[in-house]
Computed example of a mutant assay.
Amino acid sequence: MTKAKEAAKPKPEDLPYRPCVGVMLIDAQGRIFAGRRNDTEAPAWQMPQGGIDKGEKPRQAALRELHEESGVTEDLVEFVAKSPDWVTYDLPPELLGKVWGGKYRGQKQRWFLYRFLGRDDHIDIATEHPEFSEWRWITADEMLHAIVPFKRAVYEQVVAAFRRYLA
């Protein structure tokens, strides 16, 4: 890379965070829905999450993302809580500039906790644009061990915020 191109390349700290939501979906026992990402060979598990569309409120985005990633509809969940603050994470250097068109340094997320009122057969990860290859109910400690390392601090904050509702 030439010096001119290197100088024109934005520094990570100059890039904004992508506005995003996350959903912690829990069952009646307080276990967390976790999906195994289908875009990596590594066993990376996570909760539903994604970007907020233009003009969309965070809570609307959370319900949309939940449906898009798990097939779970709004009538099958009960709102429990939302995170008190937005939480952020930075992409690792090897992903910076490669995801989201290189426009963001990471994500700024608002998290929502919902209780699942349906049955397991209401969950369908074979959605129009599947993100997960499999799913399961897990404990908070299992979730913290299953998430990719660069998102672990966010998940620790989310678990801490919702701990009293969890198994």
Score class of each variant (00 low, 15 high):
105 R>A: 09
74 E>V: 05
112 F>D: 09
57 K>H: 05
127 T>E: 06
111 W>D: 00
103 K>N: 04
53 D>G: 01
135 W>H: 08
68 E>F: 07
100 W>S: 13
86 W>Y: 04
50 G>M: 15
128 E>L: 02
77 V>Y: 01
75 D>P: 05
111 W>T: 00
56 E>G: 14
81 A>F: 00
164 R>H: 09
98 K>D: 15
96 L>H: 02
131 E>T: 14
163 R>W: 11
102 G>E: 08
135 W>G: 02
113 L>E: 11
100 W>D: 12
117 L>P: 06
54 K>T: 12
144 L>G: 05
114 Y>A: 11
140 A>H: 08
118 G>A: 13
153 A>C: 01
75 D>Q: 03
148 V>D: 09
104 Y>Q: 09
130 P>T: 09
107 Q>L: 11
113 L>R: 07
59 R>V: 09
166 L>G: 00
76 L>W: 02
125 I>K: 03
152 R>I: 11
49 Q>A: 14
129 H>P: 01
164 R>K: 05
97 G>S: 01
63 L>E: 08
108 K>D: 12
101 G>N: 15
51 G>S: 15
51 G>H: 11
49 Q>Y: 11
76 L>Q: 03
93 P>F: 12
75 D>Y: 08
51 G>P: 14
113 L>Y: 09
160 A>C: 00
157 Q>K: 09
104 Y>D: 12
131 E>Q: 12
59 R>N: 05
67 H>Q: 03
138 I>E: 15
160 A>N: 06
81 A>V: 00
69 E>G: 00
68 E>C: 04
70 S>N: 06
166 L>C: 05
70 S>P: 05
89 Y>K: 13
65 E>K: 04
77 V>A: 04
